[in-house]
Design a protein around this nucleic acid. Structure first.
Lengths: 330, 330
DNA sequence: TTGTACGCGTTATCAA
DNA sequence: TTGATAACGCGTACAA
């Protein structure tokens, strides 16, 4: 900037005025400064600017597990869309479902003075954020609530969606409903399996624990679980999968069987309607989670002090065929 | 930091030394400073740090069209993976295929002093980057080469992949091969359709322009094109689609026909192998494009001055069934 | 309309 | 081993 000032034969401050389009600058001076800027390829340093101005880094952070997962990339898209409207930039980091890395990323982002942070938490204790939260940095938790901390949270109606799926299967006469799930200690998993138990109990149906397979996040494990289930002396007449990745693995495994069980998966996925038997799913809107998070975040940045909110994003069952297959004749 | 210094009864510089783990600090002093830091919830301001240190913002930028598109989110993932290894943060922005917005985003990112920038360009003239490039900021162009600018570029073997697909169809006896494509003025589109023409010419097969539908990026237009093609007095015996989004729309439209044409699509997609007729595709590795871009970028940041490179990422044909359907008996 | 002096939070330099 | 001071590039307050 000093260089520009010299080149234009004016003071530093005048350059600053021109760069920021402040009024009260002579047209000729402005012109001269613009020329010097163009000639030198000068570009305002927003880092220095935000340092001077306090905390206006105009940047927010997002920590997710894996941007390559469509669920998270949709969230990111929704968030960035709103951020662009506010002229904010978005820094995205992948925690890889690692609590330690998550914490490192949070710290790295806070050191960079992001003004707010959206987190899909992998960790199990977020009390370390309490001090920062009190200082005024907004944290929005997505998909899973924080532990040991109170703040804004946006989650799916996991339990409700799960209940709806199981009720749907029951209404078609299924009584032996298997579940292939991920880690039941993770919030979403816990809620979804709870919906399963709850609905069975509601209908007075005893629960056969041998039909429940956990920790099947890896495709291979989900496929194995499917094969094991289908090889039982009395195989399940329906299968409920608790996530899109698991659904796809299960469906891949199911191809080799002639007697197809009914199937419902949590999370919608591309081409679910195009498979030989179109797949019934519990669908929801991930991008809406992102935009909702952004709305709360920017409201907080604008000074909103309403109590922390828990937003529950609705799910809906999309019946496409696989969930409406009847049980085999008894 | 001054507060910490006061609380610990030491000078500013000593706190700085402790924060940055510099040697030559007395253990007791270090301990006292750490306590003060913990008590005050102090966190180093990396913005001020990078201001002082020159240009080490440890941040890189990525401009793509839409992070919700799996092609781009895979690129982002590959890039971020490498960035994490270098302790760099990644700012992702969506240009929405808008040249003006792209330019604004580039400027906004440069003002924030990203150290390098990866761009999937939407614009048609990148000469405005020349000055910045000469100053030493590395730009890596992804998927499409820059126009009016020389810099590192990573593109797919678009033409080769296209040729391979058409040759494959020809080898199965197809002579009337339709193409449903996006905007043929976009680099990737131009290359892919060129591969089509080239291969037909190679085999001395006259090209029927009425079998080529362009600007079908919108699902609805692609479906319409498909229906029009299938309703021709002499419909094509094979269809080639130039992108995953178009492929999915075309396949959706094709469901209503009993006589299925052969089909090959550029870009692989999830569940392509699970459809009633598994889909033959020209596949490639988007994540590899991201990691490759990151490698070049960090090499440049480390001072590499080798000439600009054009990396061509290979494609490969995955025959799954749809591309091996024979033409109807003449 | 324009310029001077100072401060933002950090690190580098050099002296103690 | 520690500290005082300047400097990074910019904006604010106030003076000219």
């Amino acid at each position: 900037m000093q260089d520009v000032a010299n080149a234009a034969g004016v003071s530093l401050k005048t350059v600053s005025r021109v760069v920021n389009n402040e009024p009260r600058v002579d047209e000729k001076t402005r012109e001269r400064v613009h020329q010097a800027i163009a000639q030198l390829g000068f570009r305002r340093n927003d880092i220095a600017r935000s340092l001077r101005q306090g905390q206006a880094s105009s940047t927010i952070g997002l920590i997710i597990e894996d941007i390559a997962n469509p669920f998270y990339s949709s969230i990111a898209r929704g968030l960035e869309k709103v951020a662009q409207q506010y002229n904010y930039m978005l820094i995205i980091s992948n925690s890889e479902e690692n609590a330690l890395r998550e914490r490192e990323l949070v710290n790295a982002l806070l050191r960079r003075r992001v003004e707010g942070l959206c987190i899909v938490p992998a960790g199990i204790d977020h009390s370390y954020l309490a001090a920062e939260l009190r200082r005024g940095t907004p944290f929005i938790f997505l998909d899973r609530p924080p532990l040991q901390l109170q703040t804004d949270t946006i989650v799916l109606d996991n339990r409700g969606g799960s209940c709806q799926a199981i009720r749907h299967l029951l209404s078609y006469g299924h009584r032996r409903i298997a579940v292939i799930q991920g880690d039941p200690r993770v919030y979403t998993g816990a809620e979804r399996i709870a919906g399963y138990y709850e609905t069975l109990a509601e209908h007075g149906i005893p629960c056969d624990e041998s039909l429940i397979y956990s920790n099947c996040d890896e495709a291979q494990l989900a496929q194995q679980a499917t094969h094991t289930l289908m090889s039982l002396p009395e195989p399940p007449s329906a299968i409920f999968s608790t996530s899109n990745r698991i659904s796809i693995a299960v469906l891949r495994a199911l191809r080799s069987y002639t007697q197809q069980p009914a199937f419902i998966g949590f999370d919608d996925f591309d081409l679910a309607d195009m498979l030989p038997t179109p797949i019934t799913v519990v669908a929801h809107d991930p991008a809406a989670m992102g935009t909702r998070a952004a709305e709360i975040l920017f409201a907080r940045l604008a000074g909103s002090t309403v109590p922390f909110q828990q937003t529950i994003v609705p799910t809906r069952l999309i019946a496409r065929g696989s969930g409406e297959l009847p049980p085999p004749q008894a």
